[in-house]
């Protein structure tokens, strides 16, 4: 029985990403003319439906955060298209064709929660100023209303009574409370889409669940979709409707959460799943070993990536079809 708060998924897309590419040029020395290209994100496709949470999982350096940053215009992408559902015009707009007003609408609807609640809040500002800043920047509401909105959102994220927090500074509150402030700052804009970059990985186990529950409940109440970035599949299972697995800048498998965990096809997904420790001492976990160099070679030998649907919108990258589909 599923007793969690993950919601039933409606139909229309909120975000459509096609062939997203982000390359970084690095020079090998101070005076060197040899430029090397790092393919941090190398042709990524995915959709996020309204009201759904998509998990983006993979190891450090696989391109999860770079994908998120290019997606929300923090870093310019190298190529590819990103479309988002514009609530004003009620249709999908490409982020490349936005004028200044369009970008403002886009930014208001797309927010980000960062990993480190110690570094992402200005230490010299009070909680009130931190949460109010986005309203000031986007000039939303009358000045008096803004403070009321701050009080309201503090209540929503469970920092009660709000009066106790308004004039405090980030160093005066705990890590879990700080992450609640980050969430409040994000949600005060009433965004439709929030990118969460490992928002609970710095928190203690006992606090982690309360933050994850808060985010799930808020998603339901405020109708927000998340792109949830994490390297921990156990956390992704708790939070996400669907999971996309990333390896070396490419998505290798994307499927419904339980489907992906029960029936992984791609060898990298299998490796990732088999590396998660199980909180049950009587269970002996089998490690699925892969040869990364070999896998990398196979993938780069077949650069025109094709994702195959093996049923139920379970997509797998095909590099060498014969090799990977025997087991399924």
């Amino acid at each position: 029985m599923l007793t969690n708060a993950v919601r039933n998924v409606p139909v229309n897309n909120l975000i459509e990403v096609r062939n997203l590419v982000k390359h970084f040029e690095v020079s090998s020395g101070l005076f060197s003319r040899n430029k090397k290209v790092i393919k941090a994100v190398d042709g990524v496709d995915f959709d996020i439906k309204a009201g759904e949470t998509l998990g983006l999982v993979g190891q450090s350096g696989c391109g999860k955060t770079t994908t998120a940053r290019s997606l929300c215009l923090l870093d310019p992408k190298t190529s590819g298209t990103v479309k988002f559902f514009n609530p004003d015009s009620q249709k999908m707009d490409s982020i490349d064709e936005l004028d200044d007003d369009g970008i403002r609408v886009f930014r208001r609807n797309m927010q980000m929660i960062f990993q480190d609640p110690y570094e992402s809040l200005n230490p010299r500002w009070t909680i009130k100023d931190i949460i109010k800043e986005p309203l000031d920047i986007h000039n939303i509401g009358a000045l008096n209303d803004r403070e009321e909105a701050v009080v309201e959102i503090l209540r929503t994220v469970g920092l009660t009574p709000p009066e106790n927090y308004l004039s405090r500074y980030p160093h005066e509150i705990s890590g879990g409370q700080r992450q609640r402030v980050s969430i409040a700052r994000t949600l005060i804009m009433k965004p439709k889409f929030v990118i969460c970059d490992e928002p609970t990985s710095m928190l203690d186990v006992s606090i982690r669940i309360s933050i994850m529950d808060l985010m799930l409940n808020l998603a339901k109440d405020l109708d927000v979709s998340y792109l949830y970035i994490t390297h921990d599949l156990a956390v992704a299972r708790y939070m996400c409707n669907r999971i996309a697995v990333m390896f070396n800048g490419k998505i290798v498998e994307i499927a419904d959460t339980e489907d992906l965990l029960q029936n992984p096809i791609h060898p990298y997904t299998k490796r990732l799943i088999s590396s998660i420790p199980i909180p049950d001492p009587s269970y002996k976990r089998e490690r699925y070993q892969i040869n990364y160099d070999e896998l990398d070679k196979i993938i780069s030998k077949n650069p025109d990536k094709k994702m195959i649907d093996i049923g139920n919108e379970h997509f797998v990258a095909t590099h060498d079809t014969k090799e990977y589909f025997i087991e399924s």
Partner: peptide
């Protein structure tokens, strides 16, 4: 409070 990828998904 510990999530797991094994077994039934529990609250």
């Amino acid at each position: 409070s510990t999530p797991s990828i094994r077994g039934e998904k529990k609250k």
